[in-house]
Design a protein around this nucleic acid. Sequence first.
DNA 1: TTGTATGCGTTATCAA
DNA 2: TTGATAACGCATACAA
Lengths: 334, 334
Amino acid sequence: MATIYEVSELAGVSLATVSRVINNSGKVTPATREKVEAAMRELGYRPNSIAQSLASNRSNSVGVLVPELHGPFFGSMLGSIEDELRAYGKHVIITAGHSDEEKEKDSIGFLVSRQCDALILHVYAVSNDFVTDLHESGTRVALIGRDLPQMAANCICIDNEQGQYLATKSLIELGHTQLAYIAGPLWKSDGQQRMAGFRRALAEHGQPFDERCVAEGNYQEASGQRAMRRLLERRVPFTGLVCANDVMAAGAIVVVRESGMTLPRDLSVIGFDNVFFTRYMHPALSTINYPIAEMGQMAARCVLRDVYGVEGLEIRNRFEPQLVSRGSTALLGA
Amino acid sequence: MATIYEVSELAGVSLATVSRVINNSGKVTPATREKVEAAMRELGYRPNSIAQSLASNRSNSVGVLVPELHGPFFGSMLGSIEDELRAYGKHVIITAGHSDEEKEKDSIGFLVSRQCDALILHVYAVSNDFVTDLHESGTRVALIGRDLPQMAANCICIDNEQGQYLATKSLIELGHTQLAYIAGPLWKSDGQQRMAGFRRALAEHGQPFDERCVAEGNYQEASGQRAMRRLLERRVPFTGLVCANDVMAAGAIVVVRESGMTLPRDLSVIGFDNVFFTRYMHPALSTINYPIAEMGQMAARCVLRDVYGVEGLEIRNRFEPQLVSRGSTALLGA
DNA sequence: TTGTATGCGTTATCAA
DNA sequence: TTGATAACGCATACAA
């Protein structure tokens, strides 16, 4: 790899001048600029961005931490983040935290030591205090899926409670009075919030809450299957199933079919997230739209604005969940 | 951020000694090691990995280039790559090439300038020569989905032709004699190979190839829908539909249903890739298994072996596609 | 076993 | 407008 030094020699100018044309900083005569650019072309020179980072104390890279890389959910988030950032010449270092406190901290440490200019975090295990400390210690961070008052301008959130409320209410309004719930992990904040939304809808419509109609999962498919089996074993009848996310709903439906039921005749099922494959299911899965791609984009814009000084970006911090009614839910008895 | 210099001062030793304990290199007395570690703890010191990279000419990061970040396919590949590499303390810089030659080259340039120790590439638009040049110019690269003789040991491949052949043959063996094909983009090598597999199966079973029964897509859902519409408009009857990937099959099935047909009674459909959501479809989609996660893992192992000197890794370069029969395909007339 | 000195490829501060 | 030169934070021969 050619270095800036070789370029300066070939062009017959100093290091500093080459640096100036690279960065469009300072004044450079068109003539010398042309000389330098010719030399760069001839040598196939590319600036070593590691050295640039060290010298300028800026890496032009932002670290992203998500729970998982596989699955339908975070892929679209990463895609929109990369798109948005790439348009401004920034790039993305991605790590997975696996919802494990140790790993999440480890990943954050890695990204920081990697001199990321900013961090975009979608974390579960790490405490709110840890994140605010990080933020207050000077690390630039945008948070997806959590709302911390100390850094509200950098949080991109959606009302999970309201979302689950809407989902549950939609089944109730279809005439269902016997509802079961496959919850998300109750140690995660969104798991709790969604659960709360489910309960609020029941309460508002005068329906009792029965613990036997709730099974906890971990957002993964297999846990949806297990949860559904437990629900069935308890022999408390229900005609509507609310799931804390689409993936568990898909798992549950596998079990539903194994036990001979037909959707939505014998059971109405509604998911949460509106991941892309819900459209491919048959019947298509009713769900709550969670605009994760757009939220990722907004997080990217936060760092573009705060860290890179890009102006005029429209940024939205709060999103509203919306009901998406499809074939998997139907009027009771219809 | 504390620097190595501050650590050395606090510990009362030299820079070099601190560096030694950081890297476990050279001999250090337990006593001085302890002093140094205490100082690091006290200062909350983390090595600046940018500076480490610059000094050591090694970044401990590998660049990954995939066509897209969203969607079901590459997420699982990225997941397995990150897992494998992370276990050895390496990390991953991810870029998307969008199957565009300019963007792919740009991404590669970026990753190289980022001093990645190696590149894992899943590219379409860039020529074989470009990749071999890159390889021969000293850049360490592992290639997924292409087989270049000059760097066979670093290519992770699967026989696309054979896969599409198996899919097509399975429909023929179910009695279908009128087959349609939704092809992948024919400018992509795997698109061509899969098409060839489709044709070979027809030929081997004495079935004519009719261009009117082929529509080209781009591997995305919407193109599957469009292709299906075109196929239907041509009014050449068919009872079996072979799709070059699962996502287009899912799109096609939407159209199939719109036009009132029932799967698999009126039409047998088979996909390709075995992405996770094919299990959730109803009927579940028959397909060809494409072990993309495992292939990503193998690519990661290639760089672990070649670049980081990890030994004893089991590496497989070639994979065989396998038929996965599910509910979307059935005996003709059954 | 520990310390000194130099270099990695840039940016940035001064002078000129 | 251009050019020396000192950082940036660390690794690593070489000496001690």
